[in-house]
Design a protein around this nucleic acid. Structure first.
Lengths: 224, 224
DNA sequence: GTCAGTTTGTGAATGTGAACACAAGCACGA
DNA sequence: TCGTGCTTGTGTTCACATTCACAAACTGAC
């Protein structure tokens, strides 16, 4: 079933599949069935087959999927085939942790520049990256950096993102817990840590409260 | 329209509304219209009205919503009316940043305990919290701690969550990028930072690639 | 009391994603 | 060449979420 729009929810799951497939490849497998991958990543096998069917026929009936081909194809879809360079804006506690975070490499992502406004921090080297003055954000385009991670205080988030948009950045991962407006060409994904934690008590109905458990039981698990 | 099940997507939005309402209250407002809140939090006003209608009639036609009543009600729904105590497991770079994160307080949440396996870290005090040995996780229930934040390496995540489940923890915010299985009574929300970043290049179609822009343009923004 | 201006609450329509069942297709052995 | 066992690909059905349009209800002025 070619020439079909790829649903957003499928795009959201592709990185999950990608990690599972790369781990399987490391373990020496060359083929994998949707059922095996399902057990591994926790997504129903029928869902996996439908997701894969959106961008072509990569499986062989009776055999399974060719892991190498699938990995290459998913990377192409997600545009991870060419390594993506990212910039970090805001090197506070969270920013420093992100600089040290080892998980980006598996996806071919890397933080190659870091910016801050604090003169005390500018010039310091954290995890091999020298912290630069925020004014140099405008050079991002020339340096071939297309992604940005925003870890500044919420009051500075909107102006930071305005400057990133002006500098030609096209994708932003934002940790500031506030509404952001950006030009249509810039995709912003906001990750609000406190908000996720605040959602958690709702699913714990058996507390001492006399509140009715209006909603059903907790549905096991949830990703992102 | 009372006695109606609250949709999951509505629950996901409630913390957003809550923050917007509390900020409005701080600014001295007592009433707010769905349109005003919509502009503030970036959710359509019709969506806001439907969401609020799921748990009772809190608005007054021609006037708007009583902010105080609404804040109390949302807190009750989310079970944030009684302050929730959380434990942090894993005080590495990310864990330390979370200990210092000031954003939890607004929701009445607080990290009141921290655990690690590294003997070098145990006993140290980070942001007023003394790091304890992981073996004391079993005391969590007795200390009235019901939430946990897991920021350990992925290889240790499953065993950590097993122990938390055994200790009576009911809700877990997990930062480890891997599949987790937990008993049905434990709600796990996984927040995979690298995965979110890996999703971003997909929405930047104008790159040098000769790939077809199969999916439409970037739909402005996305929360969490 | 009436009228104009606002704003909520909600039923209906639309859009989107998940679940399911099963036919189609491949490998392998006899 | 045929039959068996396994796995994919997909049409259909169902469940859930969003959008829209509008009647109902409230305020305040005159």
């Amino acid at each position: 079933m070619r020439y079909h729009r790829i649903p957003d929810e499928t795009v959201r799951r592709l990185p999950i599949y990608l990690r599972g497939l790369m781990i399987s490849a490391d373990q020496g497998y060359e083929h994998i069935s949707s059922q095996f991958l399902a057990d591994f990543v926790g997504v129903p096998s029928s869902q996996i087959r439908k997701d894969f069917s959106y961008f072509g026929d990569f499986g062989t009936r009776g055999v399974g999927y060719d892991i190498g081909k699938l990995v290459r194809e998913i990377k192409k879809i997600l545009r991870l085939d060419a390594a993506c360079k990212s910039a970090l804006i805001g090197v506070g506690d969270l920013g420093s942790a992100l600089l040290a975070y080892p998980g980006f490499g598996a996806y071919g992502l890397a933080i190659v520049a870091a910016f801050d406004v604090d003169p005390q921090r500018i010039g310091q080297i954290v995890n091999g990256i020298r912290i630069e003055d925020s004014s140099r954000i405008s050079e991002l385009d020339r340096r071939g950096i297309t992604l940005a991670i925003v870890a500044v205080p919420w009051a500075a988030a909107q102006s930071t993102i305005d400057r990133l948009a002006e500098a030609g950045i096209r994708g932003i991962l934002n940790f500031a817990p506030c509404r952001i407006v950006a030009p249509r060409r810039v995709k912003v994904i906001t990750l609000d840590i406190a908000m996720e934690l605040a959602r958690l008590p709702y699913y714990m109905p058996a507390g001492g409260s006399n509140e009715q458990p209006i909603a059903g039981g907790s549905p096991q698990q949830e990703a992102s």
